[in-house]
């Protein structure tokens, strides 16, 4: 089947098998291997991408569902010039990354949260990231990373005078 969607700001037109999963289209057709597969059952969140701004487990989404929609993967989070997004900077500064396999999904779930809610409470952070498992960090530094990112984004917004 023919599929059109916007991926990381670029229009994509591809031919895919009707039963293909979104994660396979991203990784195998588009070469966006930053999206990780940890369980294949929607239980770990490593494959999280944003679909029209909302986090989804791309292993549980059929490729056909991407038609006409907008997808953001980890490759589209940093600026085109390679500058890191404030969430990425914050995660690195507080030590929220260890092995890095859950990291792309964590960053995207965090982005979805902070795009909606610029000063989340701890409970709201827990709710937003409860579908993203991590075995390395114990999660404390991931929560720190989200809080730090929200502060930096707030400062950035002040500096630039308007909400993005």
């Amino acid at each position: 089947m023919n599929l059109h969607f916007i991926c990381n700001g670029q229009a994509v037109q591809i031919d895919v098998e009707p039963n293909a999963r979104a994660i396979d289209v991203l990784r195998d057709v588009l070469g966006l291997t930053g999206t990780k597969e940890g369980c294949g059952r929607g239980e770990c969140g490593a494959c999280t991408v944003l679909l029209d701004g909302k986090p989804v487990n791309s292993c549980m989404v059929l490729a056909g569902k991407l038609e006409g929609r907008t997808v953001l993967t980890i490759e589209g989070v940093a600026g085109a010039d390679g500058s890191l997004h404030p969430i990425q900077e914050a995660f690195l500064d507080v030590g929220a990354v260890q092995c890095g396999f859950c990291t792309p999904g964590m960053v995207l779930s965090t982005k979805a949260l902070l795009d909606e809610n610029d000063s989340p409470t701890i409970d709201e952070i827990e709710d937003a990231l409860s579908g993203n498992l991590c075995r390395c960090t114990g999660y404390g530094k991931i929560v720190d990373g989200v809080l730090e990112a929200s502060e930096r984004l707030a400062q950035g917004t002040q500096e630039h005078g308007a909400k993005p």
Partner: peptide, 23 residues
């Protein structure tokens, strides 16, 4: 001193190559 992971940049951007990412 508190320092960033030296390999953090590749991991946070999704560019790090895990075994399943090889083609």
């Amino acid at each position: 001193k508190k320092v960033r992971k030296v390999d953090g940049q590749e991991l946070i951007t999704g560019r790090a190559k895990f075994a399943g990412d090889y083609r």
